[in-house]
Design a protein around this nucleic acid. Structure first.
Lengths: 341, 341
DNA sequence: TAGCAATTGTCCTTCGTTGTCAATTTCCGA
DNA sequence: TCGGAAATTGACAACGAAGGACAATTGCTA
């Protein structure tokens, strides 16, 4: 009860300055019709008393909570941290604050996600994959008039502004890199099927193969869950095929790291006997050995811009068109020309 | 403006049920003095209208924001994620929400941290290192009557409840492990000096050395910043000494991974020519090769309990005594007996 | 000094929920 | 069936800031 102690209110300042609360309010809100003398005096005492406007009270009148939610589903830690960093960066100096809302599984219970958002009373939401592709969530948010910005969606472009990279082109590019090195038997480890990026990256890979007339071999397509362990297991399956691939393209770095571990456990040396490429350029890419060739996704910048769009929407402005950020092929030591043909 | 649309309020329910708002309030809060008939009716309509209490309005009356801040300073991603996971886990089902507040540097501007907390209007704070050891922050929070719980503090036990592991014992244990393998020249890479755990872990190392009569060699003490790169550089310095250590104990896993990379760049094989041990058992420990021998710190459980203490304090109950969680020595492949004596 | 404009103050309302206290109903025993 | 206690229900203010309406005061200029 006695927790919240006596905070300084507008009335306190008014009493101390011998002016009305209304005047103080006018000063603090930068309204005209106040003499400089009083303005200065009020500002001074406000500073002295360390007055902080009560966001809760302001929120009640303005019907806002000044909270922005960030929805994501257990991705790799470095992705989460980059996401948060980018979002918070843009939030710096704003009245809005960031609430993190990791969810177990978007796909299995979209309703719960929407309920969570309602209960949390956020003013807006940043949707990371796979929530950014979930039509039920998008529809519900639209109906509830909760503004949102989407990060890396691959479908449903009609649902508001988004920030993404061209997953297809990026996957295609890294596949081209492997093909360019001379690889023809290129295995791919897909990510979680509930992430739409999984299909896009597979498509990019398929396109690159097709461009070079390399037939798609379903024996070289395996599935993981974006985790180190799942990548390890998927790579093991690929490497135990009668004819094994000379290169493996994993749809994220964690799985690529798993693939390297799997190769090592089989006595296959990377990159001499097997090239491994990842995706995302997360922390892990520089830490494993050999360091991963991967595609750099500017997650932080993307989150920053998504937040920018969201804030624009919240301010009643146009959020600007959806943006496609550039990706960068990061060549490191995990890929090389195949040893034998 | 037209953002927040018409939410369902208590008054709406009251009108529909033909009772007073107060009665509805009583029902929703599980207060007595309501007949079952009215209670059922109110509950039914509330459900039908999908009523969600307005946290902001509740907060105004109760003088709370129902926000809990989590302060940390750019540690490794997996630590942050575990921290958040543990905290959120405990928060599940509570009215409180979690605001993440990463700060650039606690040490350089403690005042800014306190200001941030005030501006954000949090009801309570979870302090991760190094904020949990910052006496200025602790003092100010006490003065402002903002309750807090501390994670892994090593000093100032008089400042309220905390959750930690025994850093000294843990460091001592892992050092003993190396000594037990036969190592005598054991280098240590310290972490950021602003983290109090840095000193504690150094102390544990020193104690273990002393117990076995091994003199402390300052040439074997290097400093890093808890990052991969800093660990890499510090290890390089250690390994270029005229007499180089046969084992390196890094104060966290990121730096240990850096040390492995440094060794590899010098053609030193781990663990044959050099043992490397880490600290924390973060994701990275399983991903690098050889996998890291390290000390598992149950970060998630610690954050969970810290949140529990904080919620108790917020509810006006005693938070319970400070807790020391157990650590676990994780033996993996990065440590082995030294090759030659 | 009248006249006018610019200040400053008073008072009330809004936001949604909850605490206080008074009014009403119900119920029991006589 | 009535008194009286107990339980139920309702009316209203409060929380802190914002803002509208309008009155009262000040200062300035012609």
């Amino acid at each position: 009860m006695a927790r919240g102690k006596k905070r300084v209110t507008i009335v306190d300042i008014a009493k101390l300055c011998g002016v009305s609360a209304k005047t103080v309010s006018r000063v603090l809100n930068g309204e005209p019709h106040v003499t400089d003398k009083i303005r200065d005096q009020v500002l001074a005492t406000a500073k002295e008393l360390k007055y902080q406007p009560n966001v809760v009270a302001q929120g009640l009148v303005s019907r806002r909570s000044y909270l922005i939610g960030l929805i994501y589903e257990k991705p790799s830690p470095s992705y989460v941290v980059d996401l948060q960093k980018g979002a918070l960066e843009r939030l710096h100096g704003e009245r809005y604050r960031l609430i993190v809302l990791p969810v177990e599984s978007v796909a299995s219970d979209s309703e719960a996600v929407v309920k969570l958002l309602q209960a949390t009373a956020v003013d807006g939401v940043l949707l990371a994959p796979p929530a950014s592709d979930d039509s039920l969530i998008l529809t519900e948010l639209d109906e509830l008039h909760i503004p949102f910005a989407r990060i890396s969606p691959t479908r449903l472009p009609e649902f508001g502004p988004s920030v993404a990279i061209d997953d297809i082109a990026a996957a295609s590019e890294i596949a081209e890199h492997l093909i360019g090195l001379g690889h023809r038997r290129i295995g791919i480890i897909k990510g979680d099927a509930t992430h739409a990026a999984t299909e896009a990256r597979l498509l990019g890979y398929a396109q690159a193969m097709a461009r070079h007339g390399i037939p798609l071999n379903l024996d070289f397509v395996e599935s993981g869950l974006f985790s180190f362990e799942s990548g390890h297991d998927a790579a093991l399956r690929l490497l135990k095929r009668p004819v094994r691939p000379t290169a493996i393209l994993a749809q994220n770095d964690d799985m690529a790291a798993g693939a390297i571990a799997a190769a090592r456990s089989l006595g296959i040396e990377v990159p001499r006997d097997l090239s491994v490429a990842g995706f995302d350029d997360s922390d892990i890419a520089r830490v494993v050995w050999p360091a991963l060739t991967t595609v750099r996704q500017p997650v932080e910048a993307m989150a920053h811009q998504a937040m920018d769009m969201l804030l624009a929407t919240l301010a009643g402005d146009a959020p600007g068109p959806s943006a496609v950020h550039g990706h960068i092929l990061q060549l490191r030591q995990s890929t090389a020309a195949p040893a034998s043909t």
